[in-house]
Design a protein around this nucleic acid. Structure first.
Lengths: 248, 248
DNA sequence: GTTTATATTGCTAATTAATGCAAAATATTT
DNA sequence: AAATATTTTGCATTAATTAGCAATATAAAC
């Protein structure tokens, strides 16, 4: 087994179990613990895992984004964690794609029984890992860049839905420009999702607040909840609160 | 053996096994390790493989899932490789899921311009990695076990399609029992896919020949091509050939 | 069809990389 | 604080790589 292969295997194990023990790895691939340790150190140096006494922990637990580290994962995880509390048993939830949504999918409690509807391949994959979650995929042509289904078929399917909650990762949000994005097809889908839900929550790391992009999805008035990694009281959030959004 | 031939052989080995050792190659084609190394370096410079200490790795050696846990990968890869030759530019291809199909997705040439329609999340993900392939996802409720969309929605969507070719990984195939599977929902989808295509090719490692399961998909007469890792002339394949299947 | 240039290959020796081992030094647990 | 487990360090061993050179093979020129 080549060194890189071994490291790939280790990474896979880490993403699968969130943590590994040097001893276990040593046994399962028959190399000395020294070698494992050296591998883990290399992987830690390049930021792929977090080295701890006795083994290593996953950084951005993922099979999709194994290579490219997700930007700002830590904050995204905070956002995702806050979002979990909004989700109750029995809900019908429409969600988009994006790295924050993926983090959310991973943080969902095992016991949660809910139905998730999405057009994002990575998100669907993650939801499907949960034993008690029903996943409905909204199919259509897959946009390569974002790995989500876009097009008329998908939109009319979304319009036929009435969901309890819509969860969207946000690209740019601003009190003046509203919620904006940079991909026409994706915007159409997001619009439809917001309309199809009784309540919409936006997931956004604070960095994206007060920025805008080319294409408008909707006004702040059209959505309900804003979830960031910041404290509810943070002054940056005040304008959004005043615009009528509930802050989490 | 010419240099180009040798490098083609090396590339083939790499795509088949995901990794090669310089030593092995040196032995199997009787040239010095130096030559192999020089070849690998050339292939690495043109981006065909990833050179590592001791050998080389396939460029796509880790993405969606690691193959180490896939049963009988090598044979599945041979099946997949044979299947590639059936696919031509411009085709509309309906495919199921399953590990053999995933291998196929990975072996598709970069230059291929075709449209793939599938209800399998892992397959869609793999297809979406190709620059010139259009992916249409057939959405519906996702069956956890198989990660494919099942249900009336998906089936009626499939029925609205007329595809050039249907590629199905097979669970069990027998001259007497026909093609069988063990999941009712999946069977419905496969049935619909076969009906919606002018031609159907079955991908199956030989191990699955002459086995059967609970639920019938169709008779041998309803499909056209059988692709296994075996040689066309193999006696095991004779009964299938006699049943009217074209063997690859 | 020679002859000349160019590429390819294999060999040797020196260098570098990868791995495992053992003893000492740290952590961690009880 | 004692017992146990993990890490560090330095070293030995083996394997793989590099670089230079000689021997062939292949292509190009005459």
């Amino acid at each position: 087994m080549l060194k890189k292969e071994r490291q790939a295997y280790i990474l896979h194990q880490v993403s699968l179990h969130n943590s590994v023990l040097s001893t276990d790895l040593s046994n399962s691939i028959n190399v000395s613990e020294d070698t494992i340790r050296r591998d883990l150190n290399e992987l830690a140096e390049t930021g792929k895992v977090i080295k701890v006494h006795g083994g290593a922990l996953s950084k951005s637990f993922n099979s999709f984004y194994l290579r490219s580290d997700v930007y700002n994962v830590d904050n995204k995880k905070i956002v995702a964690q806050k979002t979990v509390s909004l989700i109750k048993d029995g809900m019908f939830i429409l969600t988009g794609g994006g790295t924050t949504i993926i983090e959310l999918a991973r943080l969902l409690p095992e016991t949660l029984k809910a139905t998730f509807l999405t057009g994002s391949i990575p998100a669907a994959y993650e939801y499907a890992q949960h034993p008690n979650i029903e996943v409905i995929f909204i199919g259509d042509k897959i946009a390569k860049k974002s790995q989500i289904a876009v097009g008329g078929e998908a939109i009319s399917k979304i319009k036929a839905i009435k969901a309890d909650l819509c969860l969207l990762g946000v690209n740019a949000i601003d009190t003046l420009y509203g919620i904006t994005d940079n991909d026409w097809d994706v915007v159409q889908v997001k619009k439809a999702m917001i309309e199809a839900s009784t309540q919409t929550a936006l997931l956004s790391i604070s960095e994206k607040l007060n920025t805008h992009q080319r294409i408008k999805i909707c006004d702040l008035a059209d959505v309900d909840i804003l979830i960031t990694e910041l404290d509810k009281q943070d002054t940056i959030l005040e304008p959004f609160s005043k615009a009528g959004l509930t802050i989490f």
